[in-house]
Deep mutational scan, measured.
Amino acid sequence: SIKEIEKEEIIKVLKEVNFNKKLASEILGIPLRTLYKRLKEYGI
């Protein structure tokens, strides 16, 4: 599903940037606030 793909992509990017959420949100092209929402939604 799209949610699974998105979750995997978020985890992959977070690992690449050593869990720097600000940098991860910039790489993913989403606002930091949205990233936090996704992390909560996906239980990351």
Rank of each mutant, 00 (worst) to 15 (best):
L35P: 00
N18Y: 08
V13W: 03
A24R: 00
L39A: 02
K7N: 05
N20T: 02
K12R: 15
E16I: 09
E4M: 10
N18G: 12
L35R: 00
R38Y: 15
I5Q: 13
A24L: 03
G29V: 02
N20C: 08
R38E: 05
K15C: 12
I11W: 10
K3T: 12
E8W: 14
L23Q: 08
E6A: 11
K7R: 14
K37H: 09
L14N: 00
I30K: 01
K3Y: 10
I10T: 08
I2C: 10
L14R: 00
E9S: 12
L35F: 07
I30W: 08
G43C: 11
E4C: 13
I30S: 01
L39H: 01
E41M: 07
S25V: 04
L35M: 04
E9M: 15
I27H: 05
E8P: 04
V17P: 00
E6K: 09
K22S: 07
E9K: 15
R33G: 12
L35N: 00
V13E: 01
I11K: 06
E6M: 12
I27Q: 06
T34Q: 13
G29N: 09
K15G: 07
L28S: 01
E16A: 14
R33H: 14
S25P: 00
Y36V: 15
P31F: 04
E4Y: 10
E16M: 14
F19Y: 14
V17A: 09
R38P: 01
K12W: 06
I44H: 05
E4S: 10
I2N: 14
I5E: 09
G29Y: 02
I10S: 01
N18L: 08
I44T: 05
I27C: 05
L39I: 13
G29H: 06
K37D: 15
I27L: 10
E41R: 06
S1D: 14
T34A: 09
Y42G: 03
S1P: 13
N20W: 05
R33E: 15
L28Y: 01
K40R: 13
R38M: 15
K12L: 07
I2G: 13
V13S: 02
E6Y: 09
L28G: 00
T34D: 15
L32C: 06
E8K: 12
E41F: 07
K3H: 13
L32V: 06
G29Q: 08
E9N: 15
Y36C: 13
V13M: 04
I11N: 03
E6T: 14
K40A: 13
E41I: 06
L32K: 02
S1W: 03
K22R: 12
L39W: 03
N20P: 01
N18E: 06
K7V: 12
